[in-house]
């Protein structure tokens, strides 16, 4: 059984193509992640799948129902937690859920029982009759996730479920999401620009950049595709002779340089640090710091798109393709992005 089948789905706004000819499928019961920077088209994709936006071309099915032809059936089979909170803060938690249940046509008898279940599931029994305005950010999120599950959908969409939450609450929310997936058996599609979130939670991840899917696989397979650790040397001095020594090393899989930084891909990075430091020393390069990056989805994203997610978000206007880190020995590539901080925004 397929939870979602997307076929050549596109959405353009005027000149801008937000979603560009996407095709993929999500299996029943899967926890599927769309990882990419803000503005990559993830929310647009979700909004089309939940029938709030009409595709420019292509189509998709949710739980077997076409998103253009069968909007009612699609809406009945899905639950969604939007990126921005969508609760009535003047109503209590219970009133928000009752409102939701009524819109989804649940009868009073089933409704009350189901609402009790949901409060128990998200651990908000004690606060059910408090106005939502008095809830903390994490509690609101939990209530929304619970609400998304209230009408027992077969697919739950979570658009950036942990944006704006502190680290602790984020972790708790991950646990809830995982539990919903395990216990309720609901298929989950979540979008995120948090590497860790996609990596920890998702069975499969699609890496989305600029409206397209750059890769789609399990987190482990995506990381394996990089084939090694990245050793990052912050350096000072002329790099030319150092680079020619690197070219000669069989264990250097690839590397890139910028005036202050060398990124070298090797297997088992920790065992090669001594060698690299010695090489630098011999070629008169001063090392300010050494760092090892084990492959994670951030490095996968970097190698696929040529920029980190944070860079994409802070500098989405510049053309990212000309600083590609591909190629085995692009020794003269001036990676102008290396001077910004390629960090996850946490």
């Amino acid at each position: 059984m397929v939870a979602i089948q997307v076929e050549s789905l596109s959405k353009t706004f005027g000149e801008t193509t937000a979603v560009d000819d996407l095709s993929f499928r999500v299996e029943d019961g899967e926890l599927f992640g769309l990882l990419g920077p803000n503005g990559a088209g993830k929310s647009t994709l979700i909004n089309m799948l939940v029938t709030l936006l009409r595709p420019s071309s292509g189509t998709a099915t949710v739980n077997g129902h076409d998103i253009i032809e069968e909007t009612a059936a699609v809406r009945n089979s899905l639950g969604i937690v939007f990126q921005e909170p969508a609760l009535d803060e003047e109503l209590t938690g219970a009133e928000n859920l009752t409102f939701h249940a009524q819109l989804y046509g649940q009868h009073k008898a089933d409704r009350d029982e189901r609402i009790d279940e949901v409060f128990e599931l998200v651990g908000l029994e004690a606060e059910r009759d408090d106005p939502v305005g008095s809830y903390s950010g994490g509690m609101k999120r939990r209530l929304e996730i619970g609400r998304g599950l209230l009408h027992e959908p077969s697919v739950l969409f979570l658009d950036e479920p942990t944006v704006g939450l502190d680290a602790r609450t984020r972790r708790d929310t991950w646990e809830y999401i995982q539990r919903m997936n395990d216990e309720a058996g609901v298929s989950i599609v979540l979008t995120s620009h948090y590497i860790e979130e996609a990596e920890q939670l998702c069975d499969r991840v699609a890496i989305v950049d600029d409206g397209e899917i750059a890769a789609i696989d399990t987190p482990a397979a995506l990381k394996d595709s990089l084939g090694g650790d990245v050793v990052i040397l912050e350096v000072d001095g002329s790099l030319s002779s150092f680079c020619s020594r690197l070219d000669a090393c069989p264990w250097v899989m690839k590397y890139t340089t910028s005036p202050t930084q060398v990124r070298i891909t090797v297997e088992h990075g920790e065992t090669r640090i001594a060698d690299l430091v010695r090489l630098a020393d011999e070629t008169g390069v001063a090392i300010a710091s050494v760092d090892i990056h084990k492959p994670n989805l951030e490095t996968v994203f970097l190698s696929l798109t040529g920029a980190t997610i944070a860079e994409r978000e802070s500098n989405s206007s510049s053309d990212a393709n000309d600083s590609a880190l591909e190629g085995t020995h692009p020794s003269t590539t001036a990676d102008r992005r290396a001077s910004t901080t390629p960090e996850d925004d946490e």
Binding site: V50, T71, F82, E84, A86, L87, D88, E89, H100, L103
Partner: peptide, 13 residues
């Protein structure tokens, strides 16, 4: 403004 309209519009109503 507060996002609640989406909750209403995404419902099968």
């Amino acid at each position: 403004d507060v996002g609640f309209l989406k909750e209403i519009l995404v419902a099968p109503v």
